[in-house]
Amino acid sequence: MNQLQNFSKGFFKENPVFVLLLGMCPTLGVTSSAINGLGMGLATTFVLVMSNVVISAVKNFIPAKVKIPSFIVIIASLVTVVELVMQAYLPALYKSLGIFIPLIVVNCIVLGRAEAFASKNTVLTSTMDGLGMGLGFSMALTMLGSAREFLGSGRLFGITIFPEDYGMLLFVLAPGAFIVLGYLIALIRRLRKA
C-alpha cells in the first residue's frame, strides 16, 4: 500500500465513523451543529497525527504487555498540551471547543489507530494514516452536524436557510443523532458497493 492510499482510506474505504464505527460517543454527542462537528473533527485530527507520530517513533522501546497503558499516558499528555496551549493563545477557539478537548482522550479512534496501526508501522506511514483518519472523521462529523443542524433548526454553519420554527427539534436532540447516523451509514454502504 502506498502513502497516498494510507491517507485516502480514512475518507471512504475505512472511514472511522461510517465504516469502522469507532468514536461513536463524541460523534453522537457533539454533532448538534456543523461547526461543532468540524471543530471536534479537526481537534481530534491534530491529536491523532501527533499521537501516531510519537507512538510509531517509540514503539520498539515499549514491551507488548504495557503497550496500552503507555499509549494512554502519551495520548492524555498530548491532549492536555493541546488544551493548555489553546487556552493560552486561542481563547476564542477554546471557548467554543473547550468541552470537547478532554473528550479526545477517551476517543477510541486515537487509541484504536495507535494500537492497530502506529504500533506496527513507520513514522511516515503512521502520519499519513493519522491525517487521513482524522480528516475522514472530521468529514463524517461535519456531514452529521450539517444534516442535524439543517433539519433541526433550519441553519447551516449558523446561516439561516429556513425559519427556525419549522425545524424538527428531534434532530437537535440525541435521538436525531442516531437516526441521521443510521441513514448516513446506509448511504455510504450503498455508495461503496456501487
Binding site: K59, N60, F61, I62, P63, V73, T80, V81
Partner: peptide, 28 residues
C-alpha cells in the same frame, strides 16, 4: 524488534513514559 515483557522492562518503561509526560506537562 519488540522489547520483551519482563518485570524490569515493564516497570522501567512505564516509569520513563510517565516521567517524561509529567516533565513535559509541567513545562507547558
Amino acid at each position: 524488534a519488540q522489547k520483551e515483557s519482563t518485570f524490569f522492562s515493564m516497570t522501567a518503561t512505564l516509569f520513563v513514559v510517565t516521567f517524561v509526560a509529567a516533565g513535559i506537562l509541567g513545562f507547558i
